[in-house]
């Protein structure tokens, strides 16, 4: 209060203003102070909530049609996993029933090795599929377009693929080269031909989606032609170097085995 008496005019010196502010800021345990504290807390909470609301994270930032697409994909994946889970449960029950378990296990293991060999790209495969041809009269199609096409085909359920003479596996990479594109180090040139085993109808439809590879290729002066085939033979195989750094994680001892 003495301050008020000495300087009645509004803030002649900024030091006086600061002192007043400091005095107001000093904590006092009055009812009004507690109330103000409460209100300030509420305001802070409200601001932070609002800020949190407006900031986007994950799904919240997506538009409605994008969400519909994501929901569709996740739903389909759930159905696929459900089927796979039932198959595995049947296999396990067959193994666990144990009558012919040794012979059964050997057959199953062989079957699984055959499947894995196809996926690993070390064994040739056959099945229904498509032949996709990308022409490039202007020489503008690069590795990214082919990479995009492979992703699009994988999305449409392609199981086994071959680009030119090269088998596509998980670790296949594409780079640009003088003559065209190089696939895992093997140079290929236009027209690029991709063989894919999978559902021909799904893959054909997928290649035509708006914003997809077909549109990009046509924008660059090329064209995409798709031929559905009843039988596609994929004979190219890869010779993968033995993994030197990736080692299997120790499997926790299974209680299922006696």
């Amino acid at each position: 209060m003495s301050d008020l008496g000495s300087s009645p005019r509004p803030a002649t010196s900024s030091a006086g203003a600061w002192r007043r502010l400091a005095r107001m800021g000093r904590p006092r345990a009055t009812k009004a102070n507690v109330l103000v504290l409460l209100l300030a807390t509420l305001l802070g909470f409200a601001i932070s909530t609002q800020v949190h609301q407006t900031r986007s994270s994950g799904l919240e930032s997506l538009r409605e049609q994008d969400l519909v697409g994501v929901l569709d994909t996740v739903t389909q994946e759930g159905v696929r996993l459900g089927t796979e889970l039932r198959d595995l449960e049947r296999t396990r029950d067959r193994l666990a029933s144990g009558v012919d378990s040794e012979k059964e296990a050997l057959a199953l293991a062989r079957e699984r090795a055959d499947t894995l060999a196809i996926l690993a790209g070390t064994a040739p495969a056959t099945g229904p599929g498509i032949r996709l041809t990308i022409t490039d009269p202007d020489g503008k199609i690069g590795s990214t377009i082919l990479l995009d096409a492979i992703q699009e085909l994988r999305d449409a359920g392609a199981e086994v693929m071959q680009v030119g003479p090269v088998r596509v596996v998980a670790s296949t990479y594409f780079t640009d080269s003088d003559a065209g594109v190089s696939v895992s180090g093997t140079g290929i040139s236009a027209p690029y031909s991709i063989l894919a085993i999978g559902d021909p109808a799904t893959m054909t439809a997928a290649m035509g989606i708006p914003g997809g590879v077909t549109v990009s290729v046509r924008g660059l002066g090329g064209d995409v032609t798709i031929a559905p085939l009843d039988q596609v033979d994929i004979t190219a195989v890869v010779d993968l170097p033995t993994p030197r750094f990736a080692t299997p994680q120790p499997v926790p001892t299974s209680s299922a085995s006696p």
């Binding site: 396990r92 193994l95 666990a96 378990s101 040794e102 059964e104 296990a105 050997l106 199953l108 293991a109 062989r110 699984r112 090795a113 894995l116 060999a117 996926l119 690993a120 790209g121 070390t122 596996v169 998980a170 993968l240 033995t242 993994p243 990736a246 299997p248 499997v251 001892t253 299974s254 299922a256 085995s257 006696p258």
Partner: peptide
């Protein structure tokens, strides 16, 4: 686990092959 138990004698090479394929795929 079940396979490994059943294949203990006969399929050692098969087990090794499966392990390698597991990494590759």
């Amino acid at each position: 686990g079940l396979e490994a138990a059943s294949l203990a004698g006969a399929g050692a090479s098969l087990t090794a092959r499966l392990q390698r394929l597991g990494i590759d795929t």
